[in-house]
Simulated scan of single mutants.
Amino acid sequence: MPRTAQPADFNNKKKHKVSDSEYARTIPCNQVSVSAPFHWLSLALHDFIRMPFISAFYGLCFMAAAVAIVQLVQWQGTHLVVMPSLIVYMLIGPFLALGLYDASWEREKGHDASLFHSIKAISRNSSSQWAFAIVLMVAMIFWMRIAALLHALYPSVQGAPLTEFAPFLITGSVIGLVIASLIFSISAFSIPLMMERRVDVMSAIFTSFNAVKSNIPAMVVWAALIGIGVLVGFATYGLGMIVTMPLLGYGTWHAYHDTIKKKHHP
């Protein structure tokens, strides 16, 4: 069963051994204000300005991934490839963001962030990170299968009135919102937590879910800002990703440090 982590979990690492029953623990979180996401973005802007080369590198990587998805959809000429493409993007995104988290972390420690060091961030607790990628993949595939089943509600007659689309649109929107909220809840802080503290994947998931549940107003604002950033990126054919994704990556790191209690806190 999940449990709340205690200060002893982070002290005397050589002497304190964690038993199998202590995995999937929940690290306590802070209460943040509804305006906190805007503060995270302001800190992210400072990081963006002070690390232009690293920001540009990862921004271009995100842009390339977005352009590839748009090109694939246009090439196939069907919306059926959108969900599989987004699954790939959801898997690539967190690993690209690792480099941004590492760069912010280095600046936070007073070090000079480097691109090479940020790229190596994927090797920190890689087993848990790959396990989390599998969790995301399964969740997205499940979402895709639900979306395919919902097509049974799609009107079979071309040019059907809008009222006949209502069951499909309403049901799809509600289910999509529930699944998207769940994915956001388990992933909001999981990756930076696994990178910094090297916790197991279930501890990261439980901690992230608890933090989101405990700060719903702020997390709704933060999720909306993330959604806007991604939409701006795709609406500008990927160009906006050069700016929005590094900002969101840096912002996520500051959100993590502001929301999850630090090791020396009770």
Rank of each mutant, 00 (worst) to 15 (best):
E196R: 14
N215G: 08
I191H: 06
I216W: 04
F189E: 02
M241A: 15
L193G: 05
I228T: 10
T207D: 04
M194G: 11
M219F: 04
G229T: 13
M195Y: 11
S185P: 00
A218C: 08
R198L: 04
N215D: 06
G238P: 05
S208M: 13
G238Y: 06
L239C: 10
G229M: 11
G229V: 14
K213R: 14
F189K: 04
R197I: 10
M194A: 13
A223E: 01
P192H: 07
V212W: 01
G229S: 11
D200G: 10
I242F: 07
T244N: 00
G227S: 13
L239W: 04
G229R: 12
N215H: 04
R197E: 15
S208T: 12
S187I: 14
I242K: 02
F184N: 03
I205F: 03
A223D: 01
I186T: 05
S190Y: 09
F234N: 08
T207L: 10
A224P: 05
G233F: 08
V232C: 05
V201P: 01
S187A: 15
V220M: 14
S208D: 05
N210D: 11
G227H: 09
G233S: 12
N215A: 09
L193V: 08
A204W: 07
A211R: 06
I242P: 01
M195R: 13
T207R: 07
L193T: 06
L225M: 15
V230S: 00
G227C: 12
A223M: 13
A223L: 13
G227N: 10
K213H: 06
L239P: 02
F184D: 01
E196C: 07
F234V: 15
K213W: 03
S208G: 09
A218E: 07
N210H: 15
G233M: 13
D200S: 09
F206N: 15
I216F: 05
S203C: 08
L239I: 15
S185H: 05
S187Y: 03
F184G: 10
V212K: 01
V212Y: 01
F206A: 14
V232E: 00
L231V: 13
A218Y: 01
T244D: 00
M241L: 12
T244A: 07
M241Y: 05
I228R: 03
S185C: 14
F209S: 14
A188D: 03
V243H: 02
F189W: 10
L225G: 08
S185V: 12
G240P: 07
T207Q: 07
W222L: 10
A211K: 07
F184I: 14
A223V: 08
S203H: 04
M195C: 09
E196N: 10
E196S: 09
P217Y: 08
I242R: 01
F189Y: 15
F206D: 00
N215I: 08
